[in-house]
Amino acid sequence: MARLRVLFVCTGNVHRSVLAERLFAKWAPDAEASSAGTQARHLEGMDAATRSVLAGLGGEVGAFASRPLTAALAAGSDLVLGMEREHREAAVRLEPQAMRRCFTLKEFLRLAADLDGAGATPEETVARVAALRGRVAPASQRADAIPDPWGQGYDVLRDCATGIDEAVRELSGVLGVRGGVLGREVT
């Protein structure tokens, strides 16, 4: 069975998207999680505060290098999840054919909330969620965003990380990849 490829996108690829990548990998170890930033510069190593909150939530803090979002990354992903609408839109501008696979993380979860995904593959779930666009009332930009904790202190970053952890845990269930095996939950 092919591994589901999920790309998380934020601005600098130093806080939100790397947290989402590593925390999703904790909840869905058989999926392939990665991250990038719309304005990222290639930096070796993880931000110290990000490493600290990630470790506290049980995420992998090993080797990491931030990287910019590219058309190839968007094209090579089964699902692209931005932290804010601008990140989703940047991925679509780079790779228009990925439009039906690009959402904000909160938007995807909001649209999937009433979806009966029983028996669906992760790819089928993504397609079903995409089909709900325009049929479900839109939410405010703020409601679909995970705000940037940059420069706001450790407590704000920790709260952001906790929210991301809850969201990616829910995502793993929606996609049917919770427990590390695609399509079924392991208890």
Rank of each mutant, 00 (worst) to 15 (best):
A74K: 00
S34D: 14
N13H: 08
P149A: 07
R88K: 14
G134P: 08
A63F: 02
S17K: 07
V92Y: 08
A113F: 01
A33G: 06
L19G: 01
A28V: 11
V129S: 12
S34N: 09
A130G: 11
G173S: 05
L69I: 07
V9P: 03
G82M: 08
W27K: 02
L171P: 07
R133V: 13
L115D: 10
V80Q: 06
E170L: 13
L175H: 10
R67V: 04
A161P: 03
L132K: 15
T38P: 01
A48F: 03
A33Y: 01
L157F: 06
P96T: 00
E44T: 08
V177P: 03
G151Y: 11
G59Q: 10
L105T: 04
V9G: 03
A113S: 15
E60C: 05
L57E: 11
G59P: 11
R22K: 13
V186G: 05
V53S: 09
F64G: 03
R142I: 02
V53W: 09
L115H: 11
R158E: 15
F103Q: 04
R178C: 04
R67P: 02
W27C: 12
E185T: 14
R128C: 03
L175R: 10
G62V: 05
A145I: 09
A130M: 11
S140H: 07
G59D: 07
A143M: 05
L7N: 07
S52L: 13
E123A: 15
R169M: 11
P122G: 08
S140A: 06
